[in-house]
């Protein structure tokens, strides 16, 4: 999180590195940390994923419950996303109900899944107007070393892609793999001294002027975007950031998500 107090020296250090074209951990500006995606890590969950972005560690568990549909969409399943910034993940996190930043981030992830129509909610209807499947996407941040939001997006969709909807014999609903029809990927671009950087580490995150998280779908269309930070952005910078995020998003989707399937 950006609220860690950095000494002015450190801030200078990061800035001067960037002027020299370098980053503290030796990465290129558009290079991600090592990413690993592991699915089906929680046997009790209907779907789960453990994602690492360098030292940032996220576990996502998907639980399904039967519930009443919303009156305005009687034939659609329901999706709910929650994020917990566990106090074990960082000295800056405290126990208690989610606060601003956790709510903001979980809503970014939620938006990506919802707006890209990643899940065919129609197929989650058990009895129209009465009973539908509710999908709970619970994001648990285990270690915060920066860029939680990207890791959460990736972990959430990876967990969803490996989710099985259980059967409900009493109502004649047969078990199906969760119907996925799109794969949204979130990529955050930060702007430090007019240099665009991907996958910010903790220190970079705390010195950056502005973050822009862009969620792209299969064909490169945008399904969500969120600016975070007080510094304004020029329109041309935004375009540049979006293009960068689209490019990287496609790469991540191809590399980490395209081969995922149930129990795979």
């Amino acid at each position: 999180m950006a609220n860690e107090i950095l000494s002015a020296l450190k801030k200078d250090y990061i800035h001067s590195l960037i002027v020299e074209g370098k980053r503290a951990d030796g990465r290129g500006f558009k290079e991600m940390r090592d990413i690993s995606v592991k699915t089906n890590v929680i046997a009790k969950a209907e779907g789960s994923a453990y994602v690492k972005y360098g030292e940032t560690k996220i576990v996502v568990g998907i639980k399904l419950q039967k519930g009443t549909p919303f009156p305005d969409s009687p034939g659609d399943g329901i999706i709910m996303t929650g994020m917990e910034l566990n106090p074990l993940a960082s000295p800056d996190f405290e126990a208690g109900p989610p606060r601003e930043e956790a709510i903001e981030m979980s809503r970014i992830v939620d938006r990506g899944i919802r707006e890209s129509h990643a899940i065919d909610l129609k197929k989650l209807c058990i009895k129209e107007g009465e009973l539908v499947w509710m999908i709970f996407v619970d994001i648990s941040v285990i270690n915060d070393a920066g860029n939680i939001v990207d890791a959460s997006c990736l972990a959430s969709i990876a967990a969803l892609m490996t989710t099985t909807v259980p059967e409900d014999a009493a109502n004649g609903f047969e078990s199906i793999p969760l119907p996925i029809q799109n794969i949204p990927v979130g990529v955050t671009v930060v702007n430090i001294d007019n240099t665009l950087i991907l996958d910010p580490g903790l220190d970079e995150e705390s010195v950056c002027d502005t973050k822009l998280t862009v969620i792209t779908e299969n064909e490169g269309a945008l399904s969500g975007m969120q600016k975070n930070g007080a510094e304004p952005l020029l329109p041309e910078t935004v375009i540049e950031m979006v293009n960068l995020a689209r490019e990287k998003g496609a790469e991540l989707r191809e590399r980490y998500l395209s081969n995922l399937s149930i129990r795979g």
């Binding site: 009790k44 639980k63 419950q65 929650g82 917990e84 106090p87 109900p97 619970d138």
Partner: peptide
């Protein structure tokens, strides 16, 4: 000491929080 169960750690989803 804070013992906490993740909502997805059990068969039926647990409500998050203490």
């Amino acid at each position: 000491y804070r013992y906490n169960m993740q909502s997805f750690s059990v068969e039926d989803r647990a409500r998050p929080g203490p």
